[in-house]
């Protein structure tokens, strides 16, 4: 066991990615930095949906609804009461998580496609309610504008593209670290067990209802944080940003990347956010190509680009304990 020396050698691709991501914004113009900012937002949302869809296997096609709750919480509290964005980040996460707990409690027993349909309905209800401007606080179809930049107090204000780029990618990085730990924890194993066989999971004493709700609440909380960062970067939130098609895109990120696979999610969100930009030269044909690419992708790699290797972690650790270090 010599972990400290090996950690960089073993995980060299990760370190290369980190180095590329931290150096590259200094070589890009503002346009591409913003494209990569949205790549980061999609990555964060993809990771949050991955908890629900990838880890537990619950179909959620209304995930943008949770992000909308987070974004609007930030927007309304900031513009009406002037609360700084940084304090609103946990508030948004809690608001989205609380909303998820509230609406998912009665529907969590539904399975498969039925859950999928209810979440579509939920996402649409959130969007339509925002458009209808309840109590005059959501600004109707125009949305809420004039949201402050993220500020850490004093001169530390995140007001340029490159700064917000680093904010989102640091958040994504921390989220990935947390999720890797979660995957290996008791919770992660319970989730995967429910995904593979719900009845077997229940019969081994896993509280299926609790773990499913936990996945929704955690996923929604992360989406709420994404909403907070999104609102402070764009300074405006409007209902059209949280449409059904965006929820579908998140669904595609998880499945294109590979369910439950964290590197897969990053690649999936790169595909969804960078692909239309790279093919901008094709102008009106680019989304056409995108749709066709999704079909071809699923025909040839139905498991996603980077499917999660199952079981290898557990076996390795078992064998290591048994003294076989060279596996």
């Amino acid at each position: 066991m010599k972990p400290n020396k090996n950690i960089i050698l073993k995980n060299w691709p990760i370190f290369i990615v980190i180095i590329i991501l931290s150096v590259s914004p200094f070589r890009m113009n503002n346009y591409w930095i913003d494209v990569f900012f949205f790549f980061g937002i999609y990555a964060l949302l993809g990771l949050s949906l991955n908890i629900v869809l990838g880890e537990v296997g619950l179909f959620d096609l209304g995930h943008m609804g949770f992000m909308a709750i987070g974004a609007y919480t930030t927007a309304i509290l900031n513009t009406h009461f002037g609360i700084p964005i940084i304090f609103l980040m946990p508030v948004s996460a809690l608001a989205a998580a609380g909303f998820a707990w509230l609406v998912c409690s009665p529907i969590i027993h539904l399975r498969g496609d039925y859950l999928c349909i209810v979440t579509i309905g939920m996402g649409e209800i959130v969007r339509l309610t925002l458009i209808n401007n309840p109590f005059g606080i959501t600004g109707g179809p125009n949305g809420v504008f004039g949201i402050d930049f993220l500020s850490f107090g004093g001169p530390l204000v995140i007001d340029s593209s490159i700064e917000s780029y680093f904010v989102i990618w640091i958040v994504v990085g921390l989220t990935i670290l947390a999720l890797i730990n979660l995957q290996r924890s008791r919770i992660g194993r319970a989730w995967n067990c429910i995904r593979e066989d719900e009845i077997a999971a229940e019969s081994t004493g896993i509280d299926v209802r609790y773990y499913k709700l936990l996945a929704f609440v955690l996923g929604a909380g992360l989406a709420g944080i994404a909403g907070n960062i999104y609102a402070s970067k764009l300074m405006i939130v409007s209902p059209e940003s949280f449409s059904f098609i965006e929820s579908c895109m998140l669904f595609c990120i998880v499945l294109i990347g590979g369910m439950g696979s964290i590197p897969g999610i990053i690649i999936g969100s790169a595909a969804v956010s960078l692909f239309p930009e790279i093919f901008r030269a094709f102008a009106r044909y680019r989304m056409l190509i995108f749709g066709a690419a999704m079909v071809i992708m699923m025909v040839f790699r139905p498991g996603g680009i980077w499917p999660r290797k199952r079981g290898s972690v557990e076996f390795k650790s078992l064998l290591t304990k048994a003294g076989e270090d060279n596996v």
Binding site: G291, M294, V295
Partner: peptide, 15 residues
């Protein structure tokens, strides 16, 4: 995967 494929067809047809 069929759901993703269906969404892909949908985007393709719309465009």
């Amino acid at each position: 995967p069929a759901v993703v494929s269906a969404l892909g067809v949908s985007i393709f047809l719309e465009n």
